[in-house]
Computed example of a mutant assay.
Amino acid sequence: MLTFSMANMIGQVILSRRVFETKGSESNEFKDMVVELMTTAGYFNIGDFIPSIAWLDIQGIERGMKHLHKKFDKLLTRMIEEHTASAHERKGNPDFLDVVMGHQGNSTGEKLTLTNIKALLLNLFTAGTDTSSSVIEWSLAEMLKNPSILKRAHEEMDQVIGRSRRLVESDLPKLPYLQAICKESFRKHPSTPLNLPRVSTQACEVNGYYIPKNTRLSVNIWAIGRDPDVWESPEEFRPERFLSGRNAKIDPRGNDFELIPFGAGRRICAGTRMGIVLVEYILGTLVHSFDWKMPDGVEINMDEAFGLALQKAVSLSAMVTPRLHQSAYAV
């Protein structure tokens, strides 16, 4: 459900419409495709370490990726065709894809091919859906494990927003505890624990280690977030750590290396700001709108699943009940 919502919110920004009108087989297929991409991209590939045998594709990873590519290409082609057909409805009010496609036939400067545009859409949808939804799921799981955190979040939201309406984006800066919960989730459960690989452009030395030119590097963001030399009681989920002291000024946008869930530098995630707002907004809406609890006798499984994105090994299953006035849920 979270992945479905994320895809539609990104679709509103990029395409001026929901990507999936109803939650059915098409949205489920999209979710499965994103999970497959993130899982496959995180596999240990023998060919990456022994290039001379890479062409054999011993594990079938490349073959699987090519098959997945065809399915994504079909979906993206349909999106672009539908967007082009409805161009007259957006006359004078172009969206992101309109602007990008305007450069496709531009005679001056760099031209974008249809393949370039599809690749851009693929990056935006895949990098922004499963990653954001996993952070929200981890946040909810941690709050269910620590009911006092959920209670404090409810108290803050009732004071700032009340129960007669739902949360809106302009409320977020007034909810420091909610923002601290998100930061703590980014620290303990970064959506891409090893980030994406980098390649050194020149030889260098880091902490006594010699790194040759063209070395493939992975930054262990997961380990940085749990380093006891950096964080006090790193295994504990404590949003309060971001409300006072030196951590109060730490921001997940790449300038503080203690907390870099989106990477840092020139190769930082292009959707960093949008991702932070979406996580805060959707998590805040879910927490504010509902009471959450686990079924009696059921314990939360906090095991992690291996892949490019940090998924829960067992999806969160919880009981929710409305906590706002009935009028607040009207569409």
Rank of each mutant, 00 (worst) to 15 (best):
M79F: 13
M65A: 14
L68S: 05
F49Y: 15
D73I: 00
A54D: 10
L68E: 05
L76Q: 01
L56D: 10
K74W: 09
E62T: 15
I50C: 04
F49Q: 09
L75I: 13
F72I: 06
L75G: 05
L75F: 15
H67Q: 13
L76M: 05
L68I: 04
I58W: 11
M79I: 14
Q59W: 05
A54Y: 10
F49I: 12
E62P: 03
E62V: 11
I53D: 09
L68V: 06
I58T: 10
D57A: 03
K66P: 05
T77Y: 01
S52G: 06
K74R: 14
K71E: 06
G60D: 05
R78K: 13
R63P: 02
L68C: 04
K66A: 12
R63K: 15
Q59Y: 05
K71N: 04
I50H: 04
D57S: 05
M65Q: 15
K66L: 12
H67N: 14
D73S: 02
I58M: 09
L75N: 03
K74I: 11
I61L: 03
R78D: 09
S52R: 12
L56Q: 08
W55L: 06
K74S: 13
F72W: 08
E62L: 09
S52T: 14
L76F: 02
K70E: 15
R78P: 01
L75R: 05
L75K: 07
T77N: 06
L56N: 07
D73W: 00
K71S: 07
M79K: 06
G64H: 11
E62R: 15
W55Q: 09
K74N: 11
D73F: 00
G64I: 07
K74F: 11
K74M: 12
D73Q: 01
T77W: 01
D73C: 00
T77C: 07
I61W: 01
K66S: 10
H67R: 15
R78I: 11
L75P: 01
F49S: 10
L75T: 11
K74E: 08
I61V: 11
H67E: 15
A54K: 11
I58D: 08
T77I: 07
H69L: 12
A54L: 04
F72L: 01
K70F: 08
G60K: 04
F49E: 11
G64T: 12
G64L: 07
K66W: 08
T77G: 06
I53V: 11
L76R: 00
E62N: 14
